[in-house]
Amino acid sequence: MDHGVREPERLGRTRLPDGRLLGWAEWGPADGTPVLLCPGAATSRRLAFGGDAVDAAGVRLVSVDRPGLGASDPAPGRTLTDWAVDIGHLVRERTLRAPLAVGFSQGAPFALALAAHRLVRAVAVVSGSDELAHPRFAHSLNPRVRDMVDAVAAGPGAAEASFAGFGGADALWELIITTSPETDRAVYTDPVFRHAFRRAMDEAFARGPAGYARDTVLAMSRWPFDPAGITVPVDLWYGQQDTSPVHSPDLGESLARLIPTATRHLLPAAGGALLWTHAEDVLRSLLAHVR
């Protein structure tokens, strides 16, 4: 099985007003409904999802490298708000009229930031990281994750330097495999998927670990927006078998209560690899909000 991974149909880089370049990849019809993908931690624009379902649904899937990862130039000290500004420019330059967004894993807060800034019409959060630094998780985080959150709160600069020293694609791959349930390992270690996943990770670290380190600081910090202020539809997708310590500790239960427009989809037999095992369901629900 390939779990819907495909080579990009279009690749490019868009110049931002400050001169930086933002890398992107596209699949599906160029005149289709734009869906912006905010990838998971330390993966590049090349890791797709949905396969043939993207074409069948008439979706123009656009995956974007965050600054410092893959083909996107670095932006030291960037924030989730800065990300929304960058994407606002990309939307205008690439004529992505009224886009939707998908945020997978660590990409979740980046996708929700687009919703908070009213850049997208609806969002699907898939196996998403939550606001891990929020007081509601004070006593429910994995101890290692709690240490990371505390380190960022105590000194973001020092924490970022520490995260940069974590390693690279090999170390992160090992962490993913050892913390995933069997249902997810079956996806990640499938030869076709593994090749696509590992290549995306290698590309993400091509400029060094700084982009990954900055993303991790943002993932372990308080969000600069209030989820209660989001007004567009938000689908929260979680698998009950998901064992990732950096995804939502309560599988989106409290986040669904905070976001007034949220619908939570909890799948008993699924794990964290939902983006590839249930891609058609995710796309169908997302598109239903605007069609």
Rank of each mutant, 00 (worst) to 15 (best):
V145R: 01
Q106T: 12
A151S: 15
V145L: 05
N142Q: 13
D147K: 13
V85Q: 06
F110R: 02
M148N: 13
F104G: 09
L90S: 04
S105E: 09
R92M: 02
R146W: 08
A84C: 00
A113S: 15
L112G: 02
R118P: 00
R92L: 08
V91N: 02
A108I: 06
P143T: 10
A98H: 13
P135A: 07
W83C: 02
G107Y: 07
A84Y: 02
W83G: 00
Q106H: 10
L119M: 12
V145T: 14
D147Q: 13
D130Y: 05
I87L: 15
R118L: 08
R121D: 15
D86C: 00
D147A: 14
R136G: 03
Q106W: 08
D147C: 03
S105A: 14
R118F: 00
E93G: 03
A111K: 07
N142T: 12
A151F: 06
L141V: 10
P109N: 09
M148Y: 10
D130W: 08
I87T: 13
E131K: 07
D130Q: 11
A111M: 09
G107L: 13
A122T: 08
D150H: 04
R136E: 10
V85T: 10
R146H: 11
M148G: 12
L141Y: 10
A116H: 14
R144E: 13
T95W: 03
A113P: 06
D130E: 15
A111S: 10
A116G: 14
D147F: 03
R121Q: 15
V91L: 09
V120I: 11
L100K: 02
A151Y: 04
H139P: 00
P135M: 04
V120H: 08
A98T: 13
L114G: 10
V120S: 11
V126D: 11
R146I: 01
M148F: 13
A101D: 07
A113R: 02
A101C: 10
T95R: 13
S140N: 12
A116N: 09
S105W: 06
A115M: 09
